[in-house]
Design a protein around this nucleic acid. Structure first.
Length: 427
RNA sequence: GCCCGGGUAGUAUAGCGGCCUAGUAUCUUGGCCUGUCGAGCCAGGGACUCGGGUUCAAAUCCCGACUCGGGCGCCA
């Protein structure tokens, strides 16, 4: 393990004469009889290892011929500048060690000569991710998360971790997964909502969390999963407009990072950084654009698509009817039927929703009751509002939806390593 | 959960009552081949999701189960 290692990306004609050690997989073996090409693949790319029968040691040539595809190899050899080789270099090996052989047949073909279906790929995810195009999605997802973290930290946000095991529902709405918690029943968190709000009472002022959320809905679509990653923020002394501006900043930072990334070419898409400010469309106008939505109803898939086609880029829907949003959203003081809640929409789907929150405990209790929920079960939460709760606002942004829409990926499963849906629990 | 359409070698597909001893590509095994980069050529290997039914005859038609995909619902 201590031997110096040369990533394939480091090879170039300028390295001619140097001895290198490549660690990677046997991507392809092309045997031309008197000449054999072994393509070694690592995370950064591929390199050609060339054996000439007349010149190489006979046992080395024979053993190279027999290497099963996708075996892990350690290849030591000399770099040679060669115009006929890919990227102008090849490695003439002195030693080829099969560190870990691959069985045959392979469950799928990482070289994509015969592309596998998504289902097959997910069943063999470890091998699917050997494909540069698949791996790039996750490396870009990492870039997106990092860009968002950097932006939030630069704005004074503190990263927190809230519990994922809860005693009861936090929001109502989406259904929860019950779990066994010693001798009691508990639930997996559908959102960090209540806890991030409590951190406003705690004086952390600005917090964010990037973590899993669990929804027990029996949905079965290209944009829903039962476990996804939520980017949640909450900020004291901000209103809905402040956090919408922050959301724009965060989303643009993510787009910019991806658009400039060298990891983008393997995905094969163009990414255009959206212009700010995003269009604000009040709910009343949105339902007119959608055509057939009654006032007070949520937007269905058809409505989202219809509006998305007309707008064509990222946009906000603002001023939602208070009754179709969660109990914690702040009603407009002058017109309480409408709220300071907003959704961030991509033309293809919703990405984020947020709001200024209610910080008055009386009003909050009343709203909980009017949703048919019992304030007693929210006592731990309401208590935080009675001893000095700053006004605050926040949002939750779906990481996978942001990444999939940005990269033009049609199925959310593509951007989750091991997706959890109605059917899939393994691997 | 509802509607529609599928399940054929490891992978991806053709065939849609008898011409199927199930075709093709890739893969794999063996052979030939000194510049491949989707290497090429020759020979071999490997499959009809499961359970019922219809029929002289089922990969093919019908029913059910499981499962995949598309649309919708629920939801973020």
């Amino acid at each position: 393990m201590s031997a110096p290692r040369t990533p394939t990306s480091a090879l170039g004609p300028g390295m001619a004469g140097r001895e290198v050690t490549l660690l990677g997989w046997a991507h392809e073996i092309r045997d031309l009889g008197g000449l054999l090409f072994l393509v070694v693949r690592d995370r950064e790319g591929t390199a050609q290892v060339t054996l000439v029968k007349a010149k190489a040691p006979p046992d080395l040539f024979a053993s190279a011929r027999a290497i099963p595809r996708e075996s892990v190899l350690r290849v030591t050899g000399t770099v040679k500048a060669e115009a006929k080789a890919p990227r102008g270099v090849e490695v003439l090996p002195t030693r080829i060690e099969v560190v870990s052989p691959a069985m045959s047949p392979l469950p799928m073909d990482p070289t994509e000569k015969v592309p596998a279906e998504l289902d097959t790929r997910l069943n063999n995810r470890f091998m699917d991710l050997r494909r540069p195009a698949a791996q790039a999605l996750f490396r870009l997802k990492s870039e997106v998360a990092d860009a968002i973290r950097s932006t939030l930290r630069s704005r004074g946000f503190i990263e927190i971790q809230t519990p994922k095991i809860l005693a009861a529902a936090t929001e109502g709405g989406a259904s929860l997964f019950p779990i066994s918690y010693f001798d009691r029943e508990a639930f997996l968190a559908q959102s960090p909502q209540l806890y991030k709000q409590m951190m406003m009472a705690a004086g952390l002022d600005r917090v964010y969390e990037i973590g899993p959320i669990f929804r027990a809905e029996e949905h079965d679509t290209h944009k829903h999963l039962n476990e996804v990653t939520s980017i949640d923020i909450e900020a004291s002394h901000m209103d809905h407009n402040d956090v919408m501006a922050l959301l724009e900043e965060v989303v643009v930072a993510a787009y910019r990072r991806v658009a400039e990334s060298p990891l983008l070419p393997p995905v094969g898409v163009q990414v255009k950084v959206p212009e700010t400010p995003f269009r604000r469309i009040p709910y009343d106008e949105a339902i007119r654009l959608a055509g057939d939505i009654r006032w007070g109803d949520d937007l269905d898939t058809r409505a989202e698509k219809a509006i998305g086609e007309k707008v064509g880029h990222l946009y906000f829907i603002t001023d939602w009817p208070t009754d179709i949003k969660p109990y914690y959203v702040m009603p407009h003081p002058d017109n309480p039927r409408l709220s300071r809640a907003f959704d961030l929409m991509h033309p293809k789907m919703e990405l984020s929703s947020g709001a200024q929150r209610i910080h008055d405990p009386q009003l909050l209790t009343q709203r909980i009751k009017s949703k048919g929920l019992a304030p007693e079960s929210f006592e731990f939460y309401l208590k935080a509002f009675r001893y000095g709760m700053p006004p605050h606002a926040g949002w939750g942004l779906g990481l996978e939806r942001l990444v999939m829409t940005m990269l033009g990926v049609e199925n959310i499963r593509e951007v989750v390593l091991f997706p959890r849906d109605r059917q899939r629990l393994v691997p």
